[in-house]
Amino acid sequence: MSDDHVDGNALAGDLREIFAVDLTTATGRCAGCGYRGSVATLRVYRNAPGLVARCPHCEEVVLRLVRGRDRAWLDLRGTVSLEIPLPS
């Protein structure tokens, strides 16, 4: 695996366009290994047609986001759940 990745912080702008809250502060659980961590800590690879986020623990793909001109595709099959902080 190349070292050419950034982290989940880089997803913030694209996810904010889709969701009403900042999803990078959410805690996700990886479907591959069960690792729990902030979306901001995922490894994000941008050298694909879209963004591919992998688990920092087992490197399983947990989130993929492809953006077209007038739509986006979000693939979360590698994520069991997302715990999203909300303003109380």
């Binding site: 989940g8 912080n9 913030a12 702008g13 904010r16 366009e17 900042d22 990078t24 502060t25 902030s38 979306v39 901001a40």
Partner: peptide, 9 residues
């Protein structure tokens, strides 16, 4: 420009 974004760091 789009932002500010990111609430974790």
């Amino acid at each position: 420009l789009r932002g500010p974004v990111g609430g974790w760091f």
